[in-house]
Simulated assay, not measured.
Amino acid sequence: MRRLFIMDQKDYDNSWNRYKRPSVRGIIIKNNKVAMVYSRKFDYYKFPGGGIENGEDHITTLKRELTEETGLTISENTITQYGSALRIQKSRFVENEIFEQENFYYLCGTFSDAGKQALDEYEADEGFELQFVEPEYAISVNRTHDHSDYDAHLIERESRVLESLVKDRLL
């Protein structure tokens, strides 16, 4: 899969332990709008998806995460690779640890409209909801609204992927 970009904060010591958390994200486009998960609590947009669990392949994780976060059912034969974004930074939770996350983005189609979400506790607390939005709007919200102390690097990563989709004329 092609690498879209690297976000390396260089705010760590290379001698620290490295925690790798690969993730998959789904890109669903309908009528020049993109399916995004909106956080009502922190006022930002992200692509639906999440971490790859032990023993899962990318497609299994993608289908599970998108169904949980959006209620949408992914049509497996529509899934195609788009690109990855590598994020490296000091852990926000563990002292003297490097957090490394490769995010694999896939274009995909769905069978039907959204069904019922199956959010975990933190997702429900954030008020995750599916919205189809124009990419410029999501980028604007992500870059100009106050997100409290939420993860600014995650929010910027999603904005950069949206910009890449626009540049590639997919949106």
Rank of each mutant, 00 (worst) to 15 (best):
R40V: 09
D11Y: 13
N96I: 09
S39K: 08
K63Y: 10
G49Y: 00
E126F: 02
F5M: 15
L86D: 08
T70C: 12
E136Y: 01
Q101D: 04
A124N: 02
S91R: 11
K167G: 06
V141E: 00
I52K: 08
K116L: 06
K33G: 07
N17I: 02
A152K: 15
I139C: 01
I28W: 00
G127Y: 01
D151E: 09
F5G: 03
L107K: 07
E121D: 12
Q89G: 15
R3F: 02
D8R: 13
F42C: 14
Y38F: 14
N96D: 12
V24F: 02
T67S: 11
R64V: 04
N54G: 09
N142H: 08
L171R: 03
I139M: 01
E53A: 07
L119K: 04
K116A: 06
N31F: 04
P48I: 01
E100S: 08
R2F: 03
T110R: 01
Y150I: 12
L62Q: 10
S140R: 07
D11N: 15
H145P: 12
Q131D: 07
V24G: 06
F47N: 03
K90Q: 13
T61N: 02
E95G: 10
E53Y: 11
S148H: 15
E121P: 03
D120H: 13
S164M: 08
N32K: 14
F99P: 05
G83Y: 03
E65K: 07
G115E: 12
H147S: 14
V166H: 00
Q89N: 15
E123Y: 01
Y106A: 08
F42I: 15
T70W: 10
K167W: 06
L62S: 09
D168T: 05
R40T: 12
A118E: 13
I27E: 00
S15Q: 07
N142R: 10
T67I: 05
F99W: 09
D120N: 15
S39H: 08
E95C: 06
D8H: 13
T61G: 02
Q9I: 10
F5K: 09
T80W: 05
S84P: 05
I74Q: 01
E163Q: 07
I59E: 12
S75I: 14
L66H: 04
F104V: 09
F104P: 04
H58E: 14
F104I: 11
F42Q: 15
Y82N: 02
N31T: 13
I139R: 00
S75G: 09
S164Q: 12
N17Q: 07
I29E: 06
A35L: 04
Y12R: 08
D57F: 12
Y105M: 02
L62I: 08
S15T: 13
E102S: 04
K33Q: 13
E65M: 05
E97Q: 08
K90I: 07
M7K: 12
S148L: 15
V166I: 15
E163G: 01
